[in-house]
Design a binder for these strands. Structure first.
Length: 195
DNA sequence: TAGAGGATTGAT
DNA sequence: TCAATCCTCTAC
């Protein structure tokens, strides 16, 4: 069952980042369904410096973060990688969750092809890699997450609290003290979590 | 309008 | 540890 609009529109992005663990992320490309279970996320909010929309500063790139929860925010990082985020909260509240790793579920052979590797462990264990495997690029930016081409699904899996590990987010040293916030979440012991 | 740099990755 | 690589953002 696809996650509905209300799931995304809560005002606590950290809570939603944790709830997204165990949910499914899927795309439909060339009539093939690709995707997996989310095992690693990071929360970003306009109140802290790690966020593109810090202090609610709207730019061409982050415009989608200001839409209501349930939109996809896809942007290019380091000129090479597409990174996929789930926009949360109400309109103009500019919060989002970065999806960092998946456990492959559907279309694994096709995802290997997209990733140009035969090593299953390497196709979705990182934010830049999973977008390549699922065929997500900037054409998906601003798409709604209950559309036909890209969507999130409730897999009926509950991740108990004790199975959720939190740690500081990756690659945002420029955020100063906010880089220390333990807003990265992953499933304890899951082998698909990024390195 | 030019210059710096980034929510990463894989090879050295 | 370092290069790849392309916008976006900022300052002139």
């Amino acid at each position: 069952m696809k996650l509905n609009e209300s799931f995304y529109q809560g005002n606590n992005v950290v809570k939603i980042a944790k709830e997204l663990l165990g949910k499914g992320l899927f795309t439909k490309i060339n009539n093939k369904t690709l995707g997996g279970m989310i095992v690693e996320t990071e929360a970003y909010s306009h109140v802290e410096k790690g966020c593109h929309a810090y202090q609610k500063k709207k730019t061409i790139r982050n415009e989608v973060m200001f839409k209501h929860g349930g939109h996809a925010y896809v942007y290019v990082c380091y000129g090479i990688h597409n990174l996929f985020n789930v926009v949360t909260n109400e309109e103009d509240e500019a919060d989002a969750v970065l999806i960092r790793a998946l456990e492959p579920v559907k279309g694994i052979e096709w995802m290997k092809k997209n990733s140009n590797t035969s090593n299953e462990k390497r196709i979705t264990s990182g934010p830049g890699k999973l977008t390549k495997a699922l065929g997500i690029d900037r054409s998906h930016n601003a798409d709604l997450l209950w559309s036909e081409h890209i969507w999130l699904e409730d897999l009926g899996i509950i991740i108990p609290k004790r199975q959720i590990v939190s740690s500081p987010r990756i690659g945002i040293d420029y955020a100063g003290e906010d880089a220390l916030l333990p807003w990265r979440f992953s499933i304890k012991g899951n082998v698909w979590v990024s390195k």
